[in-house]
């Protein structure tokens, strides 16, 4: 809630007070842009046509879809998402390389048939899944590589935050905002390892410091060293 008694420019957009054009954690910001990608050890896409299943295991929000999409941008190939409900009853596509997201939802007969077809055509399947599909894949004749995505931790969160901020910075305007280590730890604890839950928290954090800067009429040439996370709990 931005008061008009303050600069009307900031009433239109409080993030200008920080030298940003928007909240760095708003949806629709270029989170997937290559320059914003955070390497967590698996940035290189799997090799196509290798008669293998690469399964990415991890809890909700740990980055399974982000990895699948990042690799697909490198290799091409089809991407299929399996929703809950009746939408899961669709034949999984098999190409030189194919990406199946939420593959644990694929009904067993369709899954087995597609795995068999992938083995026969020497395809590479890359799947995001909550359950281990390695036994089925080996049974079908595919080699298996398992990637278990770890939960988000504070250091990575700080790097990610810095990159997201860089992406919304107005040119030529200095920006002194940084996520303190204590706040990063607090956010990762609240988010329980999930990137999207962390992004929710960071959005609130960024909104709070923007409003604080507007209220205080802060000169943005002076850095904000420590954002007050407790603002979120008013």
């Amino acid at each position: 809630m931005t008061s008009l008694r303050l600069n009307p420019k900031f009433a239109l957009n409080p993030y200008l007070a920080l030298g940003w054009h928007a909240n760095p954690f708003a949806l629709g910001e270029p989170v997937m842009a290559p320059s914003l990608w955070i390497d967590r050890g698996w940035s290189q896409a799997p090799v196509p046509a290798a008669q293998q299943l690469v399964q990415v295991l991890g809890n909700k929000g740990f980055g399974k879809t982000a990895h699948l999409r990042h690799w697909q941008a490198q290799t091409g190939g089809v991407y299929a998402y399996y929703p809950p409900g009746w939408g899961r009853f669709k034949v999984p596509p098999v190409q030189t390389i194919a990406y199946w997201d939420e593959a644990d939802r694929i009904p067993a007969p369709l899954l087995l048939a597609a795995l068999g077809r992938a083995a026969r055509t020497r395809a590479t399947l890359v799947v995001g899944t909550h359950t281990d599909l390695s036994r089925l894949a080996k049974f079908s004749g595919l080699a298996v590589q398992t990637i278990r995505l770890p939960p988000l931790e504070a250091t990575t969160l700080r790097i990610w935050t810095e990159r997201q901020i860089q992406a919304v910075r107005l040119p030529t305007v200095p920006c002194g905002v940084e996520l303190s280590s204590a706040t990063a730890h607090e956010i990762t604890a609240i988010a329980q390892g999930s990137w999207r839950a962390a992004a929710d928290e960071l959005h609130i954090w960024a909104a709070a410091i923007a409003h604080q800067a507007v209220r205080e009429g802060r000169d943005r040439r002076h850095p904000i060293s420590q954002a007050d996370l407790s603002l979120r709990r008013r």
């Binding site: 982000a66 995001g128 999207r196 979120r232």
Partner: peptide, 16 residues
């Protein structure tokens, strides 16, 4: 409410 990855998420923030 937003859709990210393959899930629909709901988030609230208490103002008062």
């Amino acid at each position: 409410q937003y859709r990210q990855g393959t899930d629909t998420e709901t988030r609230t923030h208490m103002l008062w």
